[in-house]
């Protein structure tokens, strides 16, 4: 399994720590808001982003728009992980490869989604 660099954007720090533990076979960095994440993305592109929808500062959709504005960042696969039910929406145009519902998912679902994201 390839070790990926994953940015986790989640403002609940306990949940973010849980994701880090779940993805212990990958290199992870956590951010509570999109602005800090964008700054870091400008320095180093991640292999994957795990994104909550309700985050500090600008919304997750502002971040998705921002990422789609540049050819290099538009290629980053994104997994949305939210309590909001977004599964019925097609977000592939935003680079979203998978939508996970936090209230029903199992930690293994996240590991699997990360494995298949490319």
């Amino acid at each position: 399994m390839t070790r990926k660099l994953i940015y986790i954007i989640e403002d609940d720090q306990v949940l973010a720590a849980h994701f880090v533990r779940t993805l212990k076979n990958h290199t992870t960095e956590t951010f509570t808001n999109g602005i800090d994440a964008i700054k870091r993305i400008d320095q180093q592109l991640p292999d994957l982003i795990i994104l909550d929808v309700i985050i500090d500062g600008p919304s997750a959709f502002s971040l998705l728009h921002e990422l789609q504005s540049y050819t290099d960042t538009a290629q980053i696969p994104i997994i949305i992980c939210s309590s909001l039910d977004l599964t019925q929406y097609d977000l592939t145009l935003y680079g979203v490869v998978r939508v996970l519902d936090k209230s029903t998912m199992h930690p293994d679902d996240l590991v699997e989604a990360v494995s298949y994201a490319r």
């Binding site: 609940d12 949940l15 849980h18």
Partner: peptide, 21 residues
């Protein structure tokens, strides 16, 4: 509902992760 759902989601996720911890 949302205020009560958030901690429940967190509790569920943490509980599920206990198996492999």
């Amino acid at each position: 509902a949302h205020e009560l759902k958030s901690p429940l989601v967190l509790i569920r996720q943490l509980t599920l992760s206990l198996d492999d911890a």
